[in-house]
Simulated assay, not measured.
Amino acid sequence: MSYPVGRSRFGGLFALAMALLAALAVGSWVTSGAGGWRAAAGLAFLLAAAAWAGASWWSVPSGRLTWDGARWAFAAGTGPGQSGVVTVALDLQRWLLVRWAGTRTHWVWLEHSRAPADWAALRRAVYSRADDDVPSGAEPPP
């Protein structure tokens, strides 16, 4: 099973919505009487968190996520890819937020719209347990 991975429009909009909600909360807090260094600290934290979220979204790698029945691999090019672990953090049926842990860790939104025909296979794969007895490259039964 192989699925395309890349920067997600849904993930970007989700992060933007969270940043706007946080800005509303800080704005409400400041207008209700918070002032001085507390307001400045809240605003600084909000800006830092929004910048971090934007940079994280921008740096999502593009490539293919592959499951062979025993292990996950992520390939950015045409090579065999890097082994790692995929953990589902949030399942919204048409979008999955997963944590890819290889040599680097990335949070990645997987979207139904990238490969609708392979979506069901991807969902089965992310929830299946690895079978260590399966040889690398083995094909599932027909």
Rank of each mutant, 00 (worst) to 15 (best):
A39I: 04
A19T: 13
W100K: 00
V60E: 00
W100S: 00
L97V: 13
T66R: 07
A89H: 15
A117T: 12
A115S: 09
A19N: 04
D131M: 01
A70M: 03
V30G: 02
L96D: 04
L46A: 06
D131Q: 02
R64S: 04
R64P: 10
E111C: 10
D133E: 13
L46K: 03
P140A: 02
A73I: 02
R38F: 14
R64M: 06
A17Q: 07
G79D: 13
G42Y: 02
L43Q: 03
W119T: 02
R124H: 12
D68V: 04
F45L: 15
V88S: 07
L96E: 05
W109P: 00
T87F: 08
M18D: 12
P141A: 11
P142F: 10
A41K: 03
A70R: 12
T105A: 01
W109Q: 01
V108D: 00
P61R: 06
W37Y: 11
G81Q: 02
A51W: 12
G27L: 02
W109T: 04
F14S: 14
V108T: 08
A49N: 11
P142I: 08
R71A: 11
G77T: 06
A22G: 06
G36S: 04
A22W: 07
V88G: 08
E111L: 02
A23Q: 06
A117K: 08
L96H: 09
D91G: 04
V108I: 15
A130T: 13
S2N: 11
W72Q: 02
T103H: 14
